[in-house]
Design a protein around this nucleic acid. Sequence first.
DNA 1: GCAAAAGTGTTCTTCTTACACCCATGG
DNA 2: CCATGGGTGTAAGAAGAACACTTTTGC
Lengths: 269, 269
Amino acid sequence: MIFQDSSIDCPNNSANGGIRFEIFMDSKELKDFIFHGDKVFLPHVSVDCVIFGFHDNELKVLLLKWKEGPWCLPGGFVKYDESVDDSAIRVLHERTGLRNIFLQQFHTFGHPTREKGKKTTHAKSWISKRFISIGYYALVEFSKVNPHPDMLSTECKWWDVLKVPTLIYDHKQIMNRALEAVRLDLNDHPVGYNLLPEKFTMPELQCLYETILNEKLDRRNFQKRILAMDFLVKLKERKIGGAHKAPFLYRFDKKKYSHALKQGLKSNW
Amino acid sequence: MIFQDSSIDCPNNSANGGIRFEIFMDSKELKDFIFHGDKVFLPHVSVDCVIFGFHDNELKVLLLKWKEGPWCLPGGFVKYDESVDDSAIRVLHERTGLRNIFLQQFHTFGHPTREKGKKTTHAKSWISKRFISIGYYALVEFSKVNPHPDMLSTECKWWDVLKVPTLIYDHKQIMNRALEAVRLDLNDHPVGYNLLPEKFTMPELQCLYETILNEKLDRRNFQKRILAMDFLVKLKERKIGGAHKAPFLYRFDKKKYSHALKQGLKSNW
DNA sequence: GCAAAAGTGTTCTTCTTACACCCATGG
DNA sequence: CCATGGGTGTAAGAAGAACACTTTTGC
């Protein structure tokens, strides 16, 4: 897994202050990109990011809508001197404004017909050629994201993973594969730090797990198991305001959480 | 995982009859490859294969030795109309003579300095440029392999994974990552079909697992657990000729084995 | 006061681990 | 005959699954 610094903290994520969206805004830059992008980016290699968030008890995925076109995953290209991981980090920052995101490479998609129906209006451009795409998934805190379309898109918004529309090329497969990867990773890595607010309740955490797994879990067993993993701190406070009995708040123990992330856990949901 | 046809059987693997090693043999072809390979292959993308075999109670890995150079993993490039998986399949066939091999993509390596010390005798050639490499591992039956160097190499031979020499670039890391991937896959996939002869004994299978995991396992518990997975068939015969009590022979139940491969198992070694 | 959600422990079952004795074979 | 490896089963411990009652709150 990748963290953009050694801490799991995200000190620069709050609000949008100081974030430079390094994207091309006008059509001159778009033309430059299409006709001269190969001066900057490696040909034939792209990065696609499946960005997951959690909101309203739904697992969300951030999608872009192409101008007069279908929806797709946020993606990008690899600069000549940039690592592939850094490309994914850059894409994530450009689309969400976030840094220090939990990012994981899960598969590389390289079938020659994966971009079926690719339009060839600029057939000679590097961009109309075949691309091999390296898939990453990210887990981000929904409320901190400022969705931002790229120069090819008009819209950038969250979709419920259960209701995503038709996606371009093989992007639906990529998304499903990312989901599988997240579910598998749930077995040996703690999840939640980047998906939940700082303080959260046990039922909220359980709902997150249930949503990712798309399956109901037993309340008592869930609590026992999560607490046994020993990376939560139970707070004195309860969440007030909701109907019904006020649940306790918890937060992650950053140190233990990081350790569990690196170390791995033995658990099967 | 990838099988080159729907069966896990390897009917074409025995001996070398009819295998066409599609490699370049003389220096004209080598020159063609260096200066015009980019007409055939995608630039900047390569495939590296970590080919594991099992022999003499050792986990082996197939390595190539470059002319006047270090050892490296067998690798190759992706043809313009070829899927990345097929490139790996092609590399495997060219180096081992085998088809229908168990092949698994495990990670893509894309750091810009991963090929540290890359020689630039043909600095203008596509081949001296930066490459992003897609890692595959393969599990093959040692005795059926006919190691075959490629046009850049003088030697192709098996090494004990515990004794591999210094490898070029980041190939040692790639190998170690492949080992991790195999060990993880051991948790939810049966292993052995492509590593052991058709008939084998329980101690042999256990030795395979112990070698992969680099850890001793309890004889009785191993047997219970493996048999509970229900993809072995116990034969009436025993293995004769060895010293000591003759152990029973087993074979894989092809149907159940394939099913377990697709379905996954729940097990933690 | 009632419906809906949250707090909390115990039992049963299953899986995992640890462990020992007898048997066959070659030298 | 003995050293070595192989065949086999059981008992204890750990982990997972199933499960119920009481409390709090808003309406």
